Deep mutational scan, measured.
Amino acid sequence: GPIITTQVTIPKDLAGSIIGKGGQRIKQIRHESGASIKIDEPLEGSEDRIITITGTQDQIQNAQYLLQNSVKQY
């Protein structure tokens, strides 16, 4: 399918649970989903961080599912 980009906003407090120790968790999510995932640095004074996910519809759905699971375990 076509490559698309979607953005998800997360509270910055949850960023740690998604990134994992030394970036292990986010690497695993990238690997498992096949999507490209970029977590922006939090904006000055903002409570949120923006996650940019790029890939096919399937890859993005996979990545979103894995991201949600990471947050739930936290």
Score class of each variant (00 low, 15 high):
G16Q: 08
Q57M: 04
T52F: 15
I51G: 03
A63C: 06
H31S: 12
T6Y: 01
Q28Y: 01
Q59I: 03
K21A: 09
I60G: 01
I51W: 05
L66K: 08
L43Y: 03
P11N: 10
Q64P: 00
S46I: 06
S36Y: 05
Q73C: 14
I37C: 06
A35Q: 00
P42C: 08
A15S: 05
G23W: 07
S70A: 13
D13G: 09
K12M: 07
N69K: 07
G45C: 03
G20T: 13
G23M: 12
I51H: 01
I3N: 12
I10R: 01
D48N: 04
N69H: 07
P2A: 13
L67E: 01
I51D: 01
N62L: 09
I26V: 05
I3M: 14
I50L: 12
I29D: 01
G20Q: 14
K72Q: 15
N69A: 12
Q73K: 09
S70P: 14
I37Q: 00
S17Y: 03
I18M: 11
I18V: 12
R25S: 06
E44P: 11
G45Q: 13
D13E: 04
T9I: 04
P42V: 06
T52C: 15
D13M: 10
N69M: 06
Q73P: 15
T52I: 13
N69P: 08
E44R: 10
S17V: 07
P42L: 08
K38L: 09
S36F: 07
G16W: 09
K38P: 01
T5E: 01
Q57Y: 09
S70Q: 12
I29F: 05
K38N: 04
G23R: 13
G22L: 08
L67T: 03
V71S: 08
S36A: 10
R30S: 13
S46T: 07
I53T: 01
A15T: 07
N62P: 03
I37S: 00
N69W: 02
S70C: 13
Y65H: 15
P11Y: 02
Y65D: 15
A15Y: 08
D13I: 09
I26M: 15
G23P: 06
P11G: 07
T52G: 04
I39S: 09
Y65C: 09
Q57W: 02
R49N: 14
I26N: 04
A35I: 01
N62M: 08
S33H: 01
S33K: 00
S17P: 05
D13W: 07
I51R: 00
L67G: 00
A63Q: 00
Q24V: 10
Y74F: 15
I10Q: 02
E44V: 08
T5S: 10
D48F: 04
L66T: 10
Q73R: 10
D13P: 14
T5Q: 03
L43D: 14
H31R: 10
D58M: 10
E41N: 10
Q73I: 02
Y74P: 15
T56W: 03
A15W: 02
I3S: 07
S17A: 13
V8L: 04
P2Q: 15
P42N: 09
E47M: 12
I18N: 05
Q24C: 04
R25T: 08
I37F: 06
S46V: 09
E44A: 10
L43C: 12
G20H: 05
T9F: 01
E32Q: 04
D40G: 09
Y74R: 15
R49K: 09
V71W: 05
I60Q: 05
G34N: 06
Q59N: 14
G55A: 01
S70K: 05
E47Q: 05
I26L: 14
S70W: 15
S36H: 10
L14R: 12
K72S: 12
V71E: 14
Y65T: 14
G23A: 13
P11M: 04
S33Y: 01
G34W: 01
A35D: 00
D58A: 09
K27P: 06
N62V: 08
L67Q: 01
Y74V: 13
K27E: 10
